[in-house]
Design a protein around this nucleic acid. Sequence first.
DNA 1: CTTCGGGTAATGCTGCTGCAACGGTCGAGC
DNA 2: GCTCGACCGTTGCAGCAGCATTACCCGAAG
Lengths: 212, 212
Amino acid sequence: MAEALSTALGKQGVVIDHTMCLADAAELTRQNTYDAILLDRRLPDGEGLDFIPKLRRSGIETPIIVLTAHNEPSERVTGLDTGADDYLGKPFLVEELMARLRAVLRRPAGLIEPQIVTGRMVIDPLHLSVAVEATPLELPRRELLVLVTLAKRRGRTVLRSVLEAAVYNYEEEIQSNALDAHISRLRKRLLDAGAGVTIHNIRGVGYLLKED
Amino acid sequence: MAEALSTALGKQGVVIDHTMCLADAAELTRQNTYDAILLDRRLPDGEGLDFIPKLRRSGIETPIIVLTAHNEPSERVTGLDTGADDYLGKPFLVEELMARLRAVLRRPAGLIEPQIVTGRMVIDPLHLSVAVEATPLELPRRELLVLVTLAKRRGRTVLRSVLEAAVYNYEEEIQSNALDAHISRLRKRLLDAGAGVTIHNIRGVGYLLKED
DNA sequence: CTTCGGGTAATGCTGCTGCAACGGTCGAGC
DNA sequence: GCTCGACCGTTGCAGCAGCATTACCCGAAG
C-alpha cells in the first residue's frame, strides 16, 4: 500500500521518506523536519496511534494524517483525539488525500503561504504550480521542487542540504552535481519565461532567490 | 438540522451562534471572534463554499468545517481546496464532529523560528541567513560563521579560541591571521550594508558584537 | 519509436580564503 | 609622557575549491 502511495504521490510532486515500522519513523522524525506525516494504524511493531503522543511530547508539531482501514466513526474519534490532524479511512482517492494534505498544510499560518507572489511569478506551493503573468509555467518535477523550496524562503539563503532534502528522499542519493544542473536549467527556464527573479549562489553555503 | 446540532453540541458545552443565511453569517463574523465555523453548502442565499474566500480575504483565519450532504470525493476535494479545514459529509455522528472540532482547534497558530535581531539586521542561525532591513546580505561562508557566532553571544565577549572553533573544524588548522582577515573583511561588509552593528576587539581575549 | 526528464561528467571560470607584509594601536612599566 | 613590544587591522596576491554550463546518455512513459 505504502509503495503504491509513494509512487502515486510522487507523480503529484511530493517527496516521501517511507518506513515500515514505528521505530524507524521515530528515528526519521528526529533527524528531519517534514511538512506532514501519513500514519497507518496497524504496524508490525505496534499501534500507529501510540506514535502520536510520543511525537507531540518531543515537541514536534508536524501535522499528522492517519490512513487506515479502521474506519468506524468511534475509531475516527479516538484517532483525532489522540492528536491526529485528520483521519482518512481506506479506501480513499489519492485526490482526496492530496486535498486533505493541502488543508492541513495550509493551517499553521505563515509556515506555508497559499500563494507566493515574487517577481512576475505566482507560485502555489500546495498545488505545486507556477505561473508567470497568469500564464502557467510547466516545469519538470525536480526543477519545480527546487523553485518552490527557494520561493518559500525567498530573500533568505537556503542551505544546499535543505535543497537536497527537499528534492530527493533519503533513498535516492546523488553522486554528482545533479542539483547544480537542475539549478542551471531552472535559471535558463526562468530567464526565458521572464520570471523577474534571479537565483543567486552563496559560495559554500547555498542558494538564494531574489526579485530583480 | 442546525437546531438539532445546536442542542446536541450544547450538551457538550459548546456555545453556538446560529444563522440561516450567508448574509447574517457575514455580519456575525464581522462583529465577533469565533473559535470555529460550521458551514453548510446549500443555503437559502447561495453556496456555502463561496463564503470561505470572502472570510479569508477579510483576514479572518477561523477554522472552518464544512458539513453537507454533498459527499462525493470530488466535492470534498473542492471543499477543502476552497479553504475549508475539514469536510464532513452527512450523516455523521456528533461524536465525530466534536473530535474533528477538537483537532482543528488544537492546531498551533504558527511556529516562530528562532532568529536574532540586532542593529538593523535579522540573523537566522539555523538557516545561516542574514538580512539588513529585509534585504538579504550575501556573505562568504567563513565570514558568515564568524558573524553568526558573534551574534549568538552579542553583547558578550567571544574568546578568540571559540571563534576559531566555530569557523574551522579541528582538522583545518590556521597558521596565520586568517581569522583577523575575515573579521576585517566582515567589518567592511557590515559597514557598507549599514548593519547598525560594530565588532569590537578585546585585546588579548577575543571579539565582541555591539549595536551602535 | 519518440520524447523528455534527469543523472553524469568534462570544461572553464569565479571569487573565497589563506598567507604574509606592513603599518597602526594599545598598554605596561618606568 | 615616553618607549617598546605585543597584538591587531588592512590589503594585495596566488591557489584552488566550488560553481555554471553544456553535451551526452539512459530509462521511463506515451
